[in-house]
Nucleic acid binder design. Structure first.
Lengths: 237, 237
DNA sequence: ATTTGTGAATGGGTTCACAGCA
DNA sequence: TGCTGTGAACCCATTCACAAAT
């Protein structure tokens, strides 16, 4: 489940205080979810709380850390040291939470050898060697979208079986490889979608054909609109 | 729906070629989803394709752009110019896709006045004025977790009704405000969770109490484990 | 013949409600 | 009495399958 990490964070907060035990209701409040959901999640995880009391914070922390693989560090390999890759390499949030940046990789020979923080950028052809050095690791794709699939393939070929994709492109991987995707612009577009919904577009409404246009109402919009559109929209990235 | 932006991306790719029309199947393949899902999504959106032919690419683009609010730029206000905020400010992916960075804001007086790219960091107290200048805009929270809720409150008070939260903390907003959350470390933890699942932990398995421990088997693990744990886990962020 | 649009079936996750236990 | 664990009901998204349209 995608909520476990949030529970873990909340538990760490609680553990910092003296509190030895926590109820599902309190944990739910901290994690911003429903109490029943917390119980279902934790029971599915196999952990046992004590009825009438709650969950033992320390014990729960142990179980969850183990399940989440937080008892050890997982090095990440960042592929693509452009703007975003550079940022991620410097981002403390990764190493602080058990995911130290183990290597930086780029396909551009001009970038290879450049120093970023404590690491030196290496060439993407070295991936197999790097994976062998670091052991089990997570690949982070921060390349332009056009290169994403190729990079993912190379990561998989090198033995990486967990990939986090920041490139705005759909990439396919074998079924035994875990893939997650974060598209920052998509997040913003979703927000602007809801924003759009809130304000009933005044001048736009007039230009829009009725959603259920009857056959005879085969309006001219489809032919007129694209011209205006071409100006408004940026080229595909 | 969260898939619309992906469709939009695919459509832009298609539009770059001469292709005037596209089938749901092809679009589904490009977006990495099921064909029926594409049709449901598009029909729910109100757009009409032509049976036996497919969807008119340009027309569909127009409709989707309108729905997603892509016909205009939405400026974003980045709050918190630390490592991540700095990175996001320089990230081309935002402005390239219609979300120009309109302002950088920080609470640290030492940072105010500092120049990042073409922008100068302003103080967080100026938020209301900034929102008034930019008009409808999206707030991006890139602060430490402890400050996230306060920042969100200030954004809302200043009139922002769409917030993208990068801080690893649960923040609450009024129901009329859209909130999305991106936690980079959580993404990695989810990956490490599945990775953990794949490899049946060899030495760990021995140390773990049976999930269904009987009353009499009230093992000592709960009391022993936390000690080891305290060393392994980092402090709550 | 091809492809959309959509009712119906399916499945998974969420919530409810309460039995079971401390 | 208080809180967990969990079956049952519920809800929503996905998928299937096919009629309708070109």
């Amino acid at each position: 489940m995608a909520r476990l990490p949030v529970y873990l964070r909340s538990l760490l907060e609680v553990a910092a205080t003296d509190t030895p035990t926590i109820s599902s209701e309190r944990l739910a409040e901290m994690a911003g979810v429903n109490a029943a959901k917390v119980r279902k999640d934790l029971s599915y995880l196999g952990s046992y709380g004590t009825r009438g009391v709650g969950y033992d914070v320390e014990y729960l922390l142990f179980q969850m850390s183990r399940e989440l693989g937080c008892t050890q560090d997982w090095p990440v390999i960042i592929v693509g040291v452009g703007n975003l890759g550079h940022a991620l390499a410097n981002y403390r949030g990764f190493s602080d939470r058990g995911f130290p940046v183990g290597a930086l990789v780029d396909a551009d020979p001009a970038k290879v050898g450049e120093r970023v923080g404590e690491l030196v950028i290496r060439h993407i052809d070295e991936l197999p060697a790097i994976v062998a050095e670091l052991g089990t690791s997570i690949g982070v794709v921060a390349t332009p979208p056009a290169a994403a699939q190729d990079v993912a393939d190379r990561l998989v070929a090198a033995g990486v079986c967990s990939i986090l994709n920041f490139a705005p492109a759909v990439v396919a991987v074998p079924p035994d490889v875990s893939l997650r995707k974060v598209d920052l612009a998509v997040e913003l577009q979703i927000l602007s979608f809801y924003q759009q919904r809130r304000s009933p577009g005044s001048m736009v409404a007039a230009a829009v054909p009725p959603p259920l246009a009857e056959p005879q109402a085969d309006v001219l919009v489809p032919t007129v609109v694209p011209a205006t559109l071409a100006v408004t929209l940026e080229a595909p990235s």
